[in-house]
Computed example of a mutant assay.
Amino acid sequence: MSTVTSTRSGGSAATRQAIGRAARRLFHEAGYAGASVRAIAAAAGVDAALVIRYFGSKEGLFLETVAIRGRFDDVTNGPLEGLGRRLVASLLQDRPQQTFDTWRAMLRASDSDRVRERLIAAMEEMFIVPLAPRLTGTRAELRARLVAAQISGLLDAVAILADRRITEASLADLVELYGDSIQALIDRTD
């Protein structure tokens, strides 16, 4: 029995999962443009038509399989005191390679309106929604957005630019210096 036949006979859920696993791996390895529907289908052991059948399009497959949602939920829902340092520590210590790979894949595909909208929505969900209502003082929503922008900037410096002066700095220094700059936005009361 061929891989395609056995995957199909295993049910649509197994086929969908196989395609999702292959897509995640190829999008992380080759980026959005470099991962073709045919290559994803081949890696999953299915016909390319099944990719479209289950996900609608390459863009739909990307949006469903490459996600950063929920990445900081445990941190952003915690106490505001020391949040800046905890955000930086979480970013650089908790599954950093997975986060960096996902960030790279999302940015490479951000020329797609739907992907860009999903990236903005993910930042909203991860930072603005949990933080803005809890911040005291003026311009709380803007400050929450700037926290998201600072996390994006650190991700860019480490995952995209691979700035050696940052990537080779000690974790303690990055957590202290960058975390305290984020904390200044969180703590501001005027």
Rank of each mutant, 00 (worst) to 15 (best):
F27A: 05
V175H: 02
R134S: 01
R95V: 06
G82R: 06
Y178T: 02
W103V: 07
R143Q: 12
M106D: 01
A140K: 15
M106Q: 06
G153Y: 07
D113T: 11
A43P: 15
L61V: 02
S170I: 06
A122D: 13
R69N: 05
G153D: 11
A121Y: 03
P130E: 08
L155D: 09
L80A: 03
M126T: 11
A140W: 04
R71C: 09
Y54E: 15
L61S: 07
R145Y: 11
R165P: 01
I52N: 01
E176I: 00
A157K: 05
F100I: 02
P79V: 09
M106W: 08
I160T: 09
R118K: 10
A41I: 13
T3E: 14
E81T: 11
G10Y: 13
S6E: 13
L107T: 07
A14L: 15
E125N: 02
A159R: 10
A184H: 15
D190S: 14
R86D: 01
R164S: 03
V115S: 00
R71N: 03
I52Y: 00
R85Y: 00
Y54A: 14
A43N: 08
W103M: 01
G31I: 11
L131W: 05
R95C: 08
Q93V: 07
D190K: 14
L161S: 12
G153K: 11
S110L: 04
N77H: 13
L142N: 03
F127S: 11
R164G: 01
K58D: 03
A49F: 02
R85Q: 10
A140L: 06
R53E: 13
A157F: 04
L91R: 08
L63P: 00
V4D: 11
R24E: 12
T189N: 12
G45R: 01
R16I: 12
L63Q: 00
G60P: 07
S181I: 09
L61C: 14
T138R: 15
D111H: 13
R95I: 02
E124G: 04
L119P: 04
G78A: 12
G20M: 10
E81N: 06
G70E: 07
R53I: 05
I182P: 02
A39T: 12
D94V: 13
R139H: 14
D47G: 14
V66H: 06
A144L: 12
L177M: 00
M126Y: 03
D94N: 05
T189M: 10
D113F: 10
T7D: 02
H28M: 07
R104C: 01
A159I: 08
R116N: 08
A144D: 10
K58E: 03
G60Q: 01
A169E: 04
G45C: 04
S110C: 10
Q93M: 10
G31R: 12
T76L: 14
I19P: 01
A18N: 06
R25S: 15
A162F: 03
L50Y: 15
T189Q: 14
V75E: 08
R143F: 14
F27V: 05
